[in-house]
Computed example of a mutant assay.
Amino acid sequence: MERSTSTTFRTEHPLLRIHPETGERALLLGDFLQQTTGLGGRCSQALLQLFRSHIERPGHTVRRRWRESGVAIRDNRTTQRYGVDDSGGRERRLRRGTVDGDVPVGPDGRRSRPIAPEEAPAPGFGVASGEPTAA
């Protein structure tokens, strides 16, 4: 029997990133975020909670009224997603596709960098995330 294994990644990202196409500044906040570099655990968690409570306010959210065959597309580079299960017990079919994107860059020009492992294992197919593709 074959056993499935996975790699645990730790990465340092800029807290403030610049959108590569619009130049818009956006906080890079997700549930995956564990700590802010340069701050201790308590201060880091307090700051992240402050940011998250701000972006979760109703005035900063989008709700979609779904219809049969509906489609929604968002730019995850500047979007925090939180799915609410309010389907009322009705069957839902969700399909998600992720497009390989750019490596986040902060206003000081620093790019996200891997902490562990130092190099990502080669993907089973295609090119590694963030790598240029042949034209």
Score class of each variant (00 low, 15 high):
Val99Trp: 01
Arg113Trp: 05
Glu131Asp: 02
Thr8Trp: 08
Asp86His: 10
Val99Asn: 00
Leu39Pro: 10
Arg110Ile: 03
Leu15Asp: 15
Glu68His: 09
Gln45Arg: 11
Gly40Tyr: 13
Gly83Ala: 15
Asp31Gly: 05
Ala46Met: 09
Val62Lys: 01
Val127Arg: 14
Thr133Val: 12
Leu50Ile: 07
Leu47Trp: 11
Arg57Leu: 14
Phe125His: 11
Gly88Pro: 11
Thr5Leu: 06
Gln49Trp: 02
Asp85Glu: 12
Arg74His: 14
Val103Lys: 00
Ala120Trp: 02
Ser4Gly: 09
Ser69Trp: 04
Val127Lys: 11
Gly89Tyr: 06
Ser112Ile: 06
Glu24Ala: 12
Ser53Leu: 07
Ser129His: 09
Val105Gly: 10
Asp31Trp: 00
Gly23Pro: 11
Ser129Thr: 06
Thr8Lys: 10
Val71Asn: 04
Phe9Gly: 02
Leu16Phe: 03
Thr61Tyr: 00
Arg96His: 01
Gly40Glu: 15
Pro14Gly: 09
Ser129Arg: 07
Thr8Asp: 07
Pro123Asp: 05
Ser112Asp: 14
Thr36Glu: 15
Thr36Pro: 01
Glu21Gln: 09
Val127Glu: 13
Arg64Met: 14
Thr5Phe: 11
Ala122Thr: 07
Ile115Glu: 03
Phe125Thr: 09
Pro14Phe: 02
Thr133Ala: 13
Leu47Phe: 14
Leu33Arg: 09
Thr37Lys: 14
Ser112Asn: 06
Trp66Pro: 05
Ser4Leu: 12
Val62Ile: 10
Ala72Ile: 13
Gly70Tyr: 03
Phe125Val: 07
Glu56Cys: 07
Ile115Gly: 04
Cys43Trp: 13
Ala120Asp: 12
Glu24Ile: 05
Asp75Gln: 04
Arg42Phe: 04
Ser87Gly: 09
Pro123Arg: 03
Trp66Cys: 02
Ala134Val: 09
Arg77Tyr: 02
Gln49Cys: 08
Asp108His: 01
Ala135Met: 07
Arg93Tyr: 14
His54Phe: 14
Arg52Ile: 01
Glu91Ser: 13
Arg10Gly: 00
Ala128Leu: 10
Ala116Cys: 01
Arg77Asn: 02
Arg95Met: 09
Arg74Val: 10
Arg93Gly: 04
Ala122His: 03
Thr36Cys: 13
Glu24Leu: 10
Ala116Asp: 11
Val84Phe: 06
Arg42Cys: 02
Leu28Arg: 04
Arg110Asn: 12
Arg95Gln: 09
Val105Lys: 11
Ser44Arg: 02
Gly38Asp: 12
Glu91Leu: 11
Arg90Trp: 07
Ala128Cys: 04
Glu68Trp: 03
Ile115Gln: 03
Arg65Gln: 12
Glu2Val: 12
Arg64Ser: 08
Thr36Met: 15
Arg92Phe: 08
Leu47Val: 15
Arg96Tyr: 00
Asp85Met: 06
Tyr82Gly: 07
